[in-house]
Structures are given as C-alpha cells and as structure tokens.
Lab assay of single mutants.
Amino acid sequence: SGNANTETLPSGWEQRKDPHGRTYYVDHNTRTTTWERPQPLPPGWERR
C-alpha cells in the first residue's frame, strides 16, 4: 500500500531518479529540486 519512501517526505515532495540512477527530490510547492533529502517538519510546526 504505497511506497514507504514517499510516506516520510513532507507534503508536496517527490523522490525521483536522474538518468544516472542518482536519487533527487522534487519540491512541487516551490518547483525546485535538491539532492538533499528533505526533513519532515518537527511535530507542532506548520509550514507557512
């Protein structure tokens, strides 16, 4: 039932692989990409 990797990503993020097989992350909220895995927001924090 779903990929465990995507469940731990913050809302709006997606994990992808480039043509060389390297994993990167897409932030659909800001339309940016990063090599660093995004950290889920700490409990009690809200994204503004």
Rank of each mutant, 00 (worst) to 15 (best):
T8N: 10
Q39E: 13
T8D: 14
Q39Y: 04
P40R: 10
P42R: 08
N3H: 06
N5F: 06
Y25G: 03
P38C: 01
P10A: 03
W13L: 03
D27T: 01
Y25R: 03
D18I: 00
Y25T: 04
G12H: 06
G12A: 01
R37S: 06
N3S: 07
E14T: 06
Q15F: 02
N29P: 01
Q39H: 07
G21D: 08
Y24I: 05
H28F: 03
G12D: 06
H28P: 01
P10F: 01
P10M: 06
Y25S: 03
Y24W: 02
Y24N: 02
H28M: 08
K17E: 13
P43R: 10
G44P: 13
T32F: 04
T23H: 04
G44T: 11
W13A: 03
L9M: 12
T34C: 06
K17W: 09
L9D: 05
T8V: 12
T34S: 12
R47I: 14
Y24P: 02
W35Y: 12
R47T: 15
W45M: 14
T30L: 03
N29K: 12
E14S: 06
G44L: 10
W13P: 06
L41N: 14
N5I: 04
P42T: 10
P40T: 09
T32N: 09
N29E: 09
T30R: 07
P19S: 10
G21H: 06
A4Q: 08
T30K: 05
D18H: 01
A4W: 07
W45F: 14
T33E: 06
R16V: 08
L9Y: 02
N3G: 05
G21S: 02
L9G: 05
P40A: 13
D27Y: 00
N3L: 08
A4V: 07
L41Q: 14
P42Q: 10
R48E: 15
L9Q: 09
P42D: 14
G12R: 05
E7F: 08
T34F: 00
S11G: 10
W13R: 02
P10Q: 04
S11R: 11
G2W: 11
N3E: 12
P38W: 00
L41V: 11
L41K: 13
D27V: 00
W45E: 15
D18F: 00
P10H: 00
T6P: 07
G2K: 15
N3P: 07
T33H: 02
H28A: 05
D27N: 10
P19T: 11
R16N: 00
P19W: 04
L41S: 14
S11P: 11
Y24F: 13
E46L: 06
R47H: 14
T6L: 09
W35P: 05
S11D: 11
Q15T: 13
E46K: 07
G2N: 15
Q15L: 11
D18P: 01
E36C: 14
T32G: 03
H20K: 13
Q39C: 09
K17P: 02
T8G: 13
D18V: 01
T6N: 14
T32L: 11
V26F: 04
T34P: 00
W35S: 05
K17R: 10
D27A: 02
Q39V: 11
N3D: 11
W35F: 12
D27R: 01
E46C: 10
Q39A: 14
E46V: 08
T23K: 06
E36I: 15
R48H: 15
Q15E: 14
